[in-house]
Design a binder for these strands. Structure first.
Lengths: 210, 210
DNA sequence: TCCAGTCATGTACTAAGGGACATGTCCCTT
DNA sequence: AAGGGACATGTCCCTTAGTACATGACTGGA
């Protein structure tokens, strides 16, 4: 339900159309909270029915600008102060890293290099944005101050990922060090993976327990 | 489709049941790539139909252990080497930060303190895990080496977020500095938000253009 | 005047995520 | 013998995300 509140928050700055909101989501928020226009238009319709926003004006090409209502303002404040933050993180890059041992060392090196490059670019984009803000380009309205905090979050997260990718490239996997997987002590237990290789590790393994 | 490949990757270590896989996903991956058991069981069924895994053994309480097939092994390698990484990030915490200007300074301070605490704890949990690995507790099989990389990613991302929350708490929003919003130059333009406060900023604003 | 490009809004369909519900086994303790 | 708790698998349904498709208005330049 965060898209709903994201739209309300943006509309708290002033009236905007679905198209405007769509672009706003792409700009700063795009790489931190993606939202496609079909979702935005649908949600705007729901927000109108719920009385949290209403139509401010009609423009050319069917443009409709929405305005937040008092109920909407109250709702976004309620969300910010009383609803728990959804701390769900979903990083495919880190999921993949769990399976790096299945990759050919050369492919892995290439992969990590391109990952590092991608994150570095993202971080640089956010840093450039922060610099423009700090140079006063966007003024110093409260919204701009808080946008600055979001940007800083983008910089830090992407920098962390970039550094992680570079660190990972220097971390020697056994396969890369010794030329073949399976050296060391491959039979060793690891958490939750004790079942690996045996299929069953519980006391109630196999069959006849009864 | 990453859950599919995540399951294949886990099964590449050795046979496991849906229940095992479910727990594996909770452990290290839980805070980086959440997966609920209903999805896992459903996906396992699909993987069997597609011939990427098959049933290895039956255990007590209806336990079914799955084994990866050669086709499955090839598929997970294909994914790792030829499919582009999905770089989508979705951090509700950063979305919220965009709207901090709507919050009461005291509520915001409390919010940031609890955010910092949460991320610090997550980072500590990952760091503890990394320490156990580095102490040799899980052996040195290739899978364990690559798990170590994933853990490092968790540490770095959560540390970055923790530091960001602490930094944000020291970043003075105008409202907190001067006591009231609206000082500075509130009318100043900012990117994509030029419409804010005016409703329409295009040349084709309002009505009669045609 | 045509055409490309941007503005602008929407529907339809598919896939994915996530909570609630349902069922039953086996083990250990009391 | 009873019962709590972990083990173990699954279905159902609703919400959310995301892609593809469809349509039309207006602007500026060739």
């Amino acid at each position: 339900m965060s898209l709903r509140h994201g739209l309300l928050g943006l509309l708290a700055e002033g009236p905007a159309s679905g198209y405007d909101l769509s672009r706003r989501f792409q700009e700063v928020l795009g790489a931190l909270w993606p939202a496609q226009h079909p979702k935005i238009y649908a949600e705007l319709g729901r927000l109108v029915s719920d009385g949290l926003i209403d139509i401010d004006s009609h423009g050319p090409r069917g443009r409709k600008a929405y305005r937040i209502t008092e109920a909407g303002r109250a709702e976004v404040r309620r969300w910010l102060t009383t609803v728990d933050v959804d701390h769900t993180v979903r990083l495919e890059a880190l999921l993949r890293s769990y399976f790096f041992w299945l990759m050919d060392p050369d492919d892995l090196a290439r992969h990590l290099a391109s990952e590092a490059e991608f994150y570095t670019e993202q971080a640089a984009a956010y840093r450039a944005y922060a610099a423009r803000k700090d140079a006063g380009e966007f003024g110093s309205a409260p919204q701009v101050q808080s946008m600055r905090i979001t940007i800083e979050g983008g910089v830090r997260v992407y920098e962390a990922l970039a550094e992680w990718a570079r660190w990972a490239a220097t971390y020697r996997l056994p396969a890369a060090t010794a030329g073949a997987p399976g050296d060391g002590d491959p039979g060793a237990d690891h958490p939750g993976g004790g079942a690996a290789g045996t299929g069953d590790d519980r006391g109630d393994s196999g069959h006849g327990d009864g």
